[in-house]
Amino acid sequence: MTADAAALDILLAVLLVFLVWRLLTLSDLFKATILFIVFGLLLSLAWVRLRAPDVALAEAAIGSGVTGALVLDALRRLGAHGAVDEARPLRLNLARLSGGLLVACLGAILLWSVLSLPAGWRGLSAEAMAAMPHSGVTNPVTASLLNFRSHDTLLEIAVLMLAVLGVWTLDAEPKPSAEPAGPILDLLVRILLPLMVVVAGYLLWAGGHAPGGAFQGAAVLAAGGILLHLARPFYLGNHVIIRLVIGFGFAVFLAIGVMLVVGGGRFLEFPSRHAGTLILVVEAAATISIALILLALFVGNVREGAGRDAP
């Protein structure tokens, strides 16, 4: 590693720790939220430095973008009272001191065990590279997520679905009085939204051979939806079409897995010849569902009329 690369890494690491400290101790929650978004962006830079561009994309889009928008929106709904956390800045007391000591011990244990690991570690990359020709794609990350460890990804999509179900179980909020944001934002949306759809499609397609894939594409698509929602507020409810689209990605993935069993193979065993196509189908379906899931999380559970859920 060259000296300037090392300097960049050290600067990043110091900045990340500093940001976390600031955002945990600031009493102004709005400022803390902005720092959280900045933290997400710097963290995605750190992923780039670790040569994990797929993770960096996901971090920037979901960790910083969509999550940041969610936190900002939550802050807005809390109103003026919620913007300042009375319990901050943190004063030292016995509980915090013992908590801090516990975390320090944990950190020490982690440091110690990481330092005791063997040098020159390769993990399973050799095995993964050897299996790549049969995976149907050329991007090893996509091969891992959608073929080698597709079972994990299937369940992860279910977890995302559960998040929306969880939001639906909560009491619906009355519709906030939102006015359209004006002609400039409308114009921005009109230009950006088609671009974002194209970018999402590109990311989905690129996932097969380059950094990208369903999660990243879906995050961009959801960001487009959020932008639209900010310009012209709309509400989703849990209408049958919404439920269908939310369940679609998981249903397609599971159905393909089961059909492969019916066809005489094992669960989720993509035949090498069709693996590329099947992965693209699964990813396309998942992109649509995940995008709507993320958007539904942002839009939240809003009551249309009095005492009833959205139709």
Binding site: F148, H151, R266, E269, F270
Partner: peptide, 12 residues
């Protein structure tokens, strides 16, 4: 049972 047919340690 090797899900996806890959087998450990690569698969699940």
């Amino acid at each position: 049972y090797a899900v996806g047919g890959w087998g450990r340690p690569l698969g699940i």
